[in-house]
Design a protein around this nucleic acid. Structure first.
Lengths: 245, 245
DNA sequence: CTCTTGCAAATGTCCTAACAAATGTTGACA
DNA sequence: TGTCAACATTTGTTAGGACATTTGCAAGAG
């Protein structure tokens, strides 16, 4: 049983259990702890690091929740197998491209306030005649158009300018103004493009469109954003990891 | 602030925190606690039920994790809005249709053993020349073709017959034979259909295709299934709920 | 040699206790 | 009247202990 080197900084504002969890995660991700390895038991770990058992347990629970560790009563804790090492998450080809170093460019096609849209209002849980902010952006990668994104925001964002959206992502802007989307419901589908979409995205005749509509909510349950996005089928795909209880 | 009636049975083998969590969940689901309602604070709840604060906290944490409650330091805990009441999950229009009482019909188009497919083998983590089971099914709803599903299974399922697949779902069959998929990685995209797909799904010229490929793994990390599915864009869509941490 | 019992080790549950940090409110003071 | 500091409230973190439950293994009984 390998002893993982862990340094705890009690002066840090980061909770001890989280510091521990982070370093244990790193130990597994880096391969210092391999799948199947027995994990140092709670008591020994608490003793060695001079932490209380609840604190150690909480850190371990965090990793168990993410599927990195498996606990069995009476037996011990072991490092889980590799493929399970991902939590439910949804990423897109776009995220992957950014990670790979390609730099997407986003241009604002239109930004209007006081737009009335019954569907969007309904999605945002607002009266149908609420004046909304309508934002249309085009995203390109290496000068190839990849996505056409139409977003609707509640009226408190009526003072947004194109400049605000030049550099930052929409979510970063929303967050900086106190709107924190914490949950989103997305629907992914496909359809034929409209003539306008075909033109903006540079699609050939018969090319399909990948679509995603999203409703994002704050922790308080207030709708923060409604979006209707179209993607070039050859530029985008969605990756989803699903757990089965 | 409504006092929720809770009865705790200390003689039960069910942990106290779980008993409490269950009853609080029921209170919310049944509507006795409505979204936005302030939630009895931890200390009061612990006092009233004669439980320790950690126990109460653990129960509340369970509901917070499921998105039923929202905690804010210095403010209190409130019942989350209705829309948040769902955990990360991925459903499809198909599931919705079943739930609404429509009954889809699945027919086996082909079932072959000893099929060699490099892509599928790679996805299953097997040598490229492994003889796989290739299964193609067509799913219809009200006699309208909706999905064409191509699945590859590892060789231990070579004795599967069409009869096995007549009534049960593929996952039910896999499970009954000891293969328990617990995690799956899915990729959702769109593309133009091939001539064969167009014919089988009854697509018009220019109709797009919604696609989903899936790799499913057992708890031990062994690949259980690889699937390549095509859906009619007007019959299917994927709903995904994403949390942001 | 096999089965059972008992023990040790590990995680699971539950408690008391204290202090820290964030938030909204209230009241004093300019 | 307006502003800011102190305070009460509530959740967040950490500690330390006691006992329960499960599991694997080894020693002893048959």
């Amino acid at each position: 049983m390998p002893e993982i080197a862990v340094t705890i900084d009690r002066a840090s504002p980061v909770p001890l259990y989280h510091q521990l969890a982070e370093q244990l995660t790193a130990a597994i991700d880096s391969g210092r702890l391999k799948p199947g390895d027995p994990f140092e038991n709670e008591l020994a770990l608490a003793d060695r690091l001079e932490l209380s058992r609840p604190t150690v347990r909480r850190a371990i629970a965090e990793l168990v929740g993410r599927g990195l560790l498996v606990r069995r009563r009476g037996v011990g804790t072991t490092v889980a197998s590799q493929v399970i090492h991902r939590r439910d998450e949804l990423t897109s080809l776009y995220d992957d491209m950014v990670r790979k170093g390609q730099k997407p460019r986003t241009t604002v096609v239109s930004l209007d306030t006081d737009v009335v849209d019954a569907v969007a209002s309904e999605a945002l849980g607002l009266p149908a005649d609420t004046p909304l902010v309508s934002l249309v952006r085009l995203r390109s990668v290496d000068d190839v158009p990849a996505a056409l994104m139409h977003n609707w925001l509640p009226p408190q964002f009526a003072d947004l300018t194109e400049g605000d959206l030049a550099d930052a992502s929409l979510y970063a802007v929303l967050r900086s103004r106190g709107a924190h989307p914490v949950i989103a419901h997305q629907t992914i589908g496909a359809r034929r493009p409209t003539a306008r979409e075909r033109k903006l995205l540079g699609l050939a005749a018969g090319d399909p469109l990948l679509t995603m509509s999203r409703r994002a909510y704050s922790a308080k349950g207030e709708a923060v954003e409604y979006g209707d996005h179209c993607y070039r089928y050859d530029q985008y795909a969605f990756d989803v990891t699903v757990h089965d209880r």
